[in-house]
Simulated assay, not measured.
Amino acid sequence: MAADGEVWARPAATALPEEGYFQLERGRYGPIYPRTPACYGFSIIAKVKAGREGAVRAYGKEIENAVAANPEVLAPLRLHYLRWQLFDVGSGLHFQYQGIFDTDFDKYTEDAVKLFSQTGITTVFTNLEGFPEDWQTNPEAFIAFVRAHQCPSFLEYGEYPYVTADEIKKALRLKSAFAGMLDQMQ
């Protein structure tokens, strides 16, 4: 049993209602989705513009290269994980963006627009139908697109619930330092 203050020590799951929240609370751009054992996150599904599959895949490589060149490039987003998928459901190619992060939905999307503007990296969403052309100067339009294509989850699980990415990194640095100290003692 986890001691008080150690909620991370006991796996947890939360079943969410269809709308994605238990009680309607309004943020700057719509409902506030709750922090769950998996922290915060969202899944976006949108149709890919005709002929843009190659550009979507190339953008994945662009992100890989940006992170290789500067491992902290995405740090402002407070990400745990990203997963991107392309699939055809019979009505054309669709893109799914799944992200788990440590901030609420509004802050994450605001930080994403800011990050794209500061780094010169564009967004993969420019390859999706209905994405606003003026997204860089109109963060509200960017956020409206993301909200319109958000597919709330109905179950979220955390093996180490409510732990931030920074806390995980700190624990791993401590583990490494401790292992190094033990190695020197032998």
Score class of each variant (00 low, 15 high):
175 K>E: 10
57 R>C: 02
158 G>F: 06
43 S>C: 15
88 D>C: 10
28 R>T: 13
141 A>P: 01
151 C>K: 15
47 K>R: 15
154 F>A: 06
91 S>I: 09
59 Y>F: 15
8 W>Q: 03
105 F>M: 06
98 Q>Y: 13
80 H>I: 06
92 G>N: 09
76 P>T: 06
158 G>P: 00
141 A>V: 02
139 P>H: 02
94 H>Y: 14
111 D>Q: 10
25 E>D: 11
92 G>D: 10
22 F>R: 11
108 Y>L: 08
35 R>Q: 14
130 G>R: 08
70 N>Q: 09
186 Q>Y: 03
58 A>L: 10
62 E>T: 15
93 L>H: 06
68 A>C: 02
94 H>V: 08
141 A>N: 08
41 G>P: 04
47 K>D: 07
15 A>I: 12
64 E>G: 04
98 Q>W: 08
177 A>Y: 10
51 G>I: 10
72 E>F: 14
80 H>Y: 12
180 G>A: 11
181 M>P: 04
104 D>H: 10
154 F>R: 13
150 Q>G: 04
173 R>F: 12
174 L>F: 14
118 Q>D: 13
184 Q>T: 12
23 Q>N: 11
153 S>C: 10
26 R>A: 14
123 T>M: 07
38 A>E: 01
181 M>H: 10
142 F>G: 01
131 F>E: 00
77 L>V: 00
119 T>M: 08
70 N>P: 02
17 P>Q: 08
110 E>P: 03
142 F>V: 00
82 L>K: 06
97 Y>A: 01
107 K>Y: 00
19 E>D: 13
169 K>S: 10
93 L>G: 05
101 F>L: 12
143 I>M: 07
109 T>Q: 11
35 R>H: 09
174 L>Y: 11
114 K>P: 05
98 Q>M: 13
74 L>A: 06
156 E>S: 07
16 L>D: 04
10 R>H: 06
54 G>L: 12
105 F>Q: 05
31 P>D: 06
40 Y>L: 00
97 Y>I: 04
185 M>G: 04
59 Y>P: 00
60 G>C: 13
18 E>Y: 11
3 A>L: 15
162 Y>W: 15
103 T>Q: 13
8 W>F: 14
105 F>S: 03
41 G>I: 03
49 K>H: 07
149 H>A: 01
16 L>P: 04
168 I>G: 00
143 I>S: 01
64 E>W: 08
47 K>Y: 09
98 Q>R: 14
73 V>E: 01
96 Q>W: 05
149 H>D: 04
118 Q>N: 11
63 I>S: 04
142 F>I: 02
83 R>V: 03
119 T>E: 03
171 A>E: 10
45 I>H: 05
19 E>S: 12
102 D>N: 13
1 M>E: 09
139 P>Q: 00
113 V>C: 04
71 P>Q: 08
48 V>S: 04
30 G>M: 01
163 V>E: 02
103 T>V: 15
26 R>Y: 11
18 E>P: 00
100 I>K: 06
111 D>I: 03
70 N>S: 14
61 K>E: 13
44 I>A: 07
45 I>M: 10
7 V>H: 04
22 F>P: 04
49 K>Q: 12
53 E>Q: 15
131 F>N: 02
140 E>Y: 01
59 Y>D: 07
47 K>C: 05
45 I>K: 03
11 P>Q: 08
115 L>P: 01
122 T>L: 02
39 C>N: 06
163 V>K: 02
71 P>S: 05
61 K>I: 12
141 A>E: 02
78 R>L: 07
127 N>K: 01
